[in-house]
Design a protein around this nucleic acid. Structure first.
Lengths: 149, 149
DNA sequence: GGCATAATGATGTGTATACATCATTTATAG
DNA sequence: CTATAAATGATGTATACACATCATTATGCC
């Protein structure tokens, strides 16, 4: 029986390439704000996860905990948010400041423009289907390796 | 006429999340080699772009030139490749060493395993279609903004 | 040839991301 | 209750990525 060929191209490399392109385009669109697209995503996630421990935010964003903590540093420094005690004695939670909310609004408008432009070009209908496949691929990658079952 | 809603979720954030997951999974699969998936992609690209200027490699990978140069530093330090004069007096080119080729082989085997595992789960047929959409989205994002035509 | 412009690299700075490791605190097993 | 394990954060180190800027070397136009 002929051995199946390895499927190409590299899933990781393809997505990283796309990630770089989108990052540049979205950051360029947000350039009038001091915030970039990663920080916007974090801010939005914190807004959705009020009083949740930071670990929860990291999980939502599929980030390593330490990556999130490092990303928060400049945002705390610039007073977009502050760190407060959580429900636990060990956990902390992030709280968005007034400045942070203002940024969320301002950057949100810029984001809407670039997001609409990109997705309209791609096709709204196809976009919904594509996002579903993105999520499914994430699951395929994340699923534990079922070794010798 | 009702204004159309902004399509969600954020294209950039969705892809960055997927990128983080895939990066972790592929890097874990390559952990027995000293090379990570980004470096593997660069090495492969250099292999395909023999005697081309570094700028060309950066373009292929959708990377900023400076990002590529920085990424090459540890690879040159560890002697996976060396930098040689290009066809120009101004351009340089990267040359893979024996060590680099050995790594390309060793890591290639690990890569095949994780790539096959992830794509088989996703479905080979669907994978081909998905890759096409990834490329199309990249084009949609990269296309210049047609302002006031 | 001479000048303006492109291409190519190099470098300073700043954020993004992860892994390993350590300390503290909570939860769990016995 | 105690010993162990798990959760949460903090930090050291390393790579990933981009923008702005500068120097050098082509290229094109006159």
């Amino acid at each position: 029986m002929p051995k199946k060929s390895v499927p190409r191209p590299c899933a990781c490399t393809s997505i990283k390439k796309l990630s770089r392109v989108l990052g540049r385009v979205y950051d360029a669109a947000l350039a009038t704000s001091p915030i970039n697209v990663t920080q916007l995503a974090i801010l939005r996630c914190i807004d959705r996860s009020k009083s949740q421990p930071l670990t929860h935010v990291a999980e939502e964003l599929e980030m390593d905990r330490s990556s999130l903590y490092r990303a928060l540093d400049p945002m705390v420094r610039d007073e977009w948010l502050k760190i407060a005690a959580g429900t636990d004695a060990r956990s902390l939670t992030a709280v968005i400041t007034h400045k942070g909310y203002r940024l969320l609004e301002d950057a949100g408008e810029q984001w809407e423009q670039v997001q609409t432009r990109v997705v309209e070009r791609f096709g709204r209908r196809k976009w919904a289907a594509f996002v579903a496949e993105v999520d499914r691929l994430r699951g395929c990658a994340n699923a534990p390796e079922e070794e010798n079952l």
